[in-house]
Design a protein around this nucleic acid. Structure first.
Length: 474
RNA sequence: GGCGCCUUGGCGGAGUGGUUACGCAGAGGUCUGCAAAACCUCGUACACCGGUUCAAUUCCGGUAGGCGCCUCCA
């Protein structure tokens, strides 16, 4: 498995510390609002990474966090907690807001066929671990307390700017936000924030420094150490996290343990809509549910994500999503006939079977090679189309269906998309197909076309052959 | 202001110093009751200007346009 490592800015082999186990930590969502398509590109790509590691014979141990407290609206450390703000907006408690959007996130995650992480961990369930980590940093002299909280002194961590290749002097000179005057360095960040004097927070805990809540960055360090150890193999997240969140995670973690925090940092690039990145302020972040309401399936969304490389700036539009949906339909159509014996009058041939076995084995090999090479999913998709096309144009016996099953299972594991439908159709749909066949036999074309439209409305396409109709999912 | 990135055919999107992926859409043809199915054929794109080279979309320099980060962000 080769991956582009942000730490070294090169593509390099992944070398797990305790192979075959490979530990992966993914920065998950802040659950104060709905996830949008940009998030889903990110998580589908991370899921693809996990699948690729498995394909390569490794055993990923995957942890994803849910940020349900502490993520401030502004990093000036004077902003409001996003969860508390969301609560005010919706007239709920911060706890209710977090629960609602967490459930919504998990629901969409399943729709997109994203594998279940081994642990999905919430920041609010790990307050003690975060406090303990802050205490450790305190005992080593990395912290200081000011009016509104406990802060990390970034000047004490040598090489703070190295990961993101920041020029701290220039950052300061060009900064557009007002800094907290009490901070020793502009890049210092809060480890623990004190509850405000003027109102009561929904979420707050006692700590050695006073009542309050953890800063945003400390949760990832504390939870990844708890579940995956001091050093993890691969840490992933959005590309935007490089300069602040991940830089701070490294500073905290490595200061506390004295060890390397993550060996490989993998970052997913942003998705663009109309030439701009997706953001709340632009209001261009379409939700998965809204896409589905446009008649596009979650699997088409998934396939669309795979059609671009995770490090490129993908452009997003409903038009390109529809193209992916059509593409998925065509792939399924290419494989559909093997399961419908009534209309495939080809007798079994040992030679043909052997040929198919070899052909599919070869494509499996090629697709795997593409995926484990820094997740070259566009190449994998090219190969899948090529394979489907070859299969569609050379007859095979129904007896060879298990060969296709095997390939379909491989694609399901590797890419998370279904390319075959072995499931029986519902009786009423079968009935419609039969009725249409009858209408065609009677040359009742009007009725035949009407039935075809009806089937299409149920997501079923039909294809007429000399020996009958084959159906496939649209 | 500082740092960095991008520019590929109608759309999306790979890739490469010399045979110009792939998908969707589109065109023509075959077949078909029809085609919205299937099959066959078809696109010489790589911002612009120079340079290096036998050869550049691919390397170097510049120009234009766009974008990202330095604020919250996947």
């Amino acid at each position: 498995m080769k991956l582009y490592n942000t730490l070294t800015r090169t593509v390099e082999p992944v070398k797990p510390l305790r192979a075959p186990q490979v530990t992966v930590y993914t920065c998950g969502p802040t659950v104060y609002d709905y996830a949008h398509i940009g998030h889903w590109f990110n998580y589908v790509r991370m899921d693809t990474l996990i699948r690729a590691l498995k394909l390569d014979g490794l055993e990923p141990k995957w942890v994803m966090n849910i940020t349900d407290v502490g993520h401030l609206v502004s990093d000036a450390d004077e902003g409001e907690d996003k969860l508390e703000k969301g609560a005010r907006r919706e007239g709920k408690t911060a706890w209710e807001v977090a629960e609602f959007y967490t459930q919504d996130f998990l629901k969409d995650m399943h729709l997109l066929n994203i594998l279940e992480p081994d642990h999905i961990v919430k920041a609010t369930d790990h307050i003690a671990e975060q406090i303990a980590l802050i205490q450790k940093l305190e005992s080593k002299g990395y912290t200081y307390v000011i009016d509104d909280g406990v802060y990390y002194d970034t000047s004490k961590f040598e090489g703070y700017a190295a990961f993101a290749r920041l020029d701290l002097d220039d950052l300061q000179a060009g900064a557009r936000v007002a800094f907290n005057e009490q901070k020793r360095n502009s890049s210092d960040f809060a480890l623990w924030k004190f509850s405000p004097k003027d109102h009561k927070r929904d979420m707050e805990w006692d700590s050695p420094w006073g009542k309050g809540f953890p800063g945003w960055h400390i949760e990832c360090s504390a939870m990844s150490m708890k579940y995956l150890g001091d050093t993890i193999d691969i840490h992933t997240g959005g590309i935007d996290h490089i300069p602040v969140h991940h830089t701070n995670e490294i500073a905290q973690s490595e200061a506390a343990t004295g060890k390397r925090f993550a060996n490989v940092w993998m970052h997913s690039n942003h998705v663009m809509v109309n030439g701009e990145k997706i953001s709340k302020s632009l209001g261009n972040g379409i939700r998965l549910q809204e896409i589905v309401e446009q008649g596009i399936s979650p699997e088409a969304v998934r396939l669309h994500v795979l059609e671009s490389h995770y490090r490129s700036h993908a452009k997003f539009s409903l038009e390109s999503l529809r193209a992916s949906q059509a593409s998925l339909k065509n792939i399924r159509n290419d494989f559909s006939w093997i399961y419908q014996p009534a209309v495939v009058p080809v007798s079994k041939s040992e030679e043909r079977s052997r040929e198919l076995v070899e052909q599919f084995a070869s494509y499996k090999q090629l697709i795997k090679a593409a995926i484990i090479n820094d997740l070259a999913t566009p190449e994998a998709m090219r190969l899948l189309h090529e394979c489907a096309g070859r299969f569609a144009t050379t007859p095979a016996s129904m007896d060879d269906a298990p060969i296709v099953d095997d390939f379909a299972a491989f694609i399901q594991d590797a890419l998370g998309i279904h390319i075959t439908d072995r499931d029986e159709l519902k009786d009423e749909l079968k009935q419609l197909i039969a009725e249409r066949e009858q209408a065609r036999a009677n040359k009742d074309w009007a009725k035949s076309d009407e039935l075809r439209d009806k089937l299409a409305a149920d997501g079923i396409g039909v294809r007429d052959t000399p020996s009958g109709a084959i159906w496939y999912r649209l």
